[in-house]
Computed example of a mutant assay.
Amino acid sequence: MNCKPSALKLVSRVKSETLTDLKSFCRRSIELMSCDVSSYAKGRYRLWLFHECNLKTGKITKGYYDDRLWNFCQRVYSGTNIGLLTFGGKVGNIQSTGLIQLHRDHSYSQVIARTVNLGSCIFNYDGKDYQLNDGDIIEFNCKKLHGVTKILSEERFSINLWKLNEVKGYKPVV
């Protein structure tokens, strides 16, 4: 499915029977997360999925891998090979803002991104605010300005998915 360069669209919703399992997986994954190093996402916890990109050097390395999550992500965005699980909320001694300032995604990714939203937030895209609700799956041009400006639920997770931009030299690690 292609996305017009300026469009943000709701492409699907996570099935209710999958939503509960997915949220449980995300909660269990908090202990694997680390504080984001991006200056745009101070105080946000995240976990690279499948591959990781060092945003300073552009080096691609292996990220966290789970078969069930991989299969789910392939159904959400066929061909995806790099992702980021983010968290907003408080669990135990971990408190994460879950926010990220307006930014354009690094050149490691192709233009189209998909996000699985778990919880509720305000997502600003190309100068306009959108409320993302529990289970929404959106597609957008990640080279346009976008960010999460407010978390509306007690906890919020996002699974952000891209395809590595092999044309620019970002290749999967074997």
Rank of each mutant, 00 (worst) to 15 (best):
N2Q: 15
S6I: 04
K9H: 14
L10D: 08
L10E: 09
V11K: 13
V14Y: 08
K15P: 11
E17M: 13
E17Q: 14
E17N: 14
K23H: 09
S24I: 12
C26G: 03
R28E: 14
E31K: 14
E31A: 08
E31M: 06
E31T: 07
L32Y: 10
L32V: 04
L32K: 08
M33G: 02
S34I: 12
S34F: 14
V37I: 14
S38G: 07
S38E: 07
S39C: 10
A41W: 01
G43S: 08
G43Q: 04
L47F: 04
L49T: 01
L49N: 01
N54W: 01
L55A: 05
L55R: 00
T57R: 04
I60K: 00
I60M: 04
I60C: 02
K62R: 13
K62D: 11
G63P: 03
Y65E: 05
L69V: 05
L69F: 03
F72N: 01
C73S: 06
C73A: 07
G79M: 06
G79S: 09
T80S: 10
G83E: 02
T86Q: 02
F87M: 02
F87T: 01
F87D: 01
V91L: 12
V91C: 11
Q95F: 09
T97L: 14
L99G: 02
L99F: 04
Q101G: 10
L102C: 03
R104T: 15
S109H: 04
Q110V: 09
T115W: 07
V116A: 09
V116I: 15
V116M: 11
G119M: 09
S120K: 15
C121I: 15
C121L: 13
D126A: 10
G127S: 11
G127N: 14
G127Q: 15
K128W: 09
Y130C: 15
L132S: 06
D134R: 11
G135R: 08
I137G: 14
E139K: 06
F140C: 03
F140K: 07
N141C: 08
C142F: 01
C142V: 00
K143R: 15
K144I: 10
L145C: 05
L145M: 10
L145F: 06
K150M: 15
I151G: 06
L152M: 13
S153V: 13
R156V: 12
F157I: 10
S158R: 06
N160M: 08
N160A: 08
W162M: 06
K163Q: 15
K168R: 13
K168V: 01
G169L: 05
K171C: 09
V173M: 02
